[in-house]
Design a protein around this nucleic acid. Structure first.
Lengths: 154, 154
DNA sequence: GATAATATCTGATATATTCCGCATTTTCCC
DNA sequence: GGGAAAATGCGGAATATATCAGATATTATC
């Protein structure tokens, strides 16, 4: 007998694959009712089986009209490269090194010129009003966040 | 089944876009009757979905002959729009308002989905490890820097 | 059997929607 | 000029929905 988490996971993947766009939108309470468990059980299933590393993007909205939306996403090689870059820049990175990384991504056509310029501006020393080493730490955080946004196509 | 606020929002946007000048004038009570909700529900929809950050201007008149008028703010000049947004967000901006601005720029096709996502991640509260109001101030600076990168074509 | 990993649920918290009850403004009529 | 009708605005309560930390239970591994 499998556990309720496996059953819910299987159900969600089934309805996702039957959807041409590989995207589903659910209400926690409805799924919980259907499988006779508490609503936060759905959170557990989603947080453990539908992660970015496994190729899913989860978005949600609280309150009346709330929902949970799960999308399938792709492009593992690029994701891996970006993960390596993110790991490289922890826990802080200088502006010069950051710009070099962005130039590399531009050369490999993983980002556009506009995106490069946007990111360069976001992490410029004039944008971040802190002393070193805090400025380099904040720069690493912002850089990582932006790179994370590039890992997958939707 | 979606909630009544989303339905009213969609209806208002539809009649606005079918209008060449992107301006509509409504009576609260008429819309409320049409969608079978209380009149103040219209206030809620307008106050949350038709904000300045999202590119709308709302005017109204109470009393007999009262109305609500909603206009789409149009900007012929992209650089001017971005300058106005940069001015709007000084000296600090909340994450919600920033996201609304980016959605507006996305709607007007001034930025791509990827660029929007990149910027949303850069200014997310999880990226900026500060207490309020400093976090909103840093957010404004990063946002301004990124918007400045978009003012002109490369 | 001890420990680690995973699963399930509780209770608190965050966010969004809907409506109530009243305030305010404007127009019309006597 | 005053009162009634026609209109919108708003603070707050109630309700609807999701997330999350942590406690506890179950299962897996050694």
């Amino acid at each position: 007998m499998r556990n309720i988490s496996d059953i819910i996971e299987e159900y969600l993947k089934k309805i996702m694959h039957s959807n041409q766009h590989k995207i589903i939108e659910i209400k926690r309470s409805e799924i919980a009712d259907r499988f006779e468990c508490v609503p936060s059980q759905i959170n557990y299933v989603i947080n453990t089986r539908f992660t970015l590393e496994k190729g899913y993007l989860v978005e949600s909205k609280r309150g009346g009209g709330g929902y949970i939306r799960i999308s399938r996403i792709t492009n593992e090689d690029k994701a891996q490269l970006i993960d390596e870059i993110i790991e490289m820049i922890q826990p802080k990175i200088s502006q010069l090194k950051a710009v070099n990384i962005l130039e590399r991504l531009l050369e490999e056509e993983l980002i556009t010129k506009r995106e490069a310029k946007l990111m360069v501006n976001a992490i410029d020393r004039n944008t971040l009003p802190f002393q070193l080493p805090l400025r380099d730490e904040i720069r690493a955080r912002i850089m990582s966040a932006m790179l994370n946004a590039l890992k997958y196509e939707i």
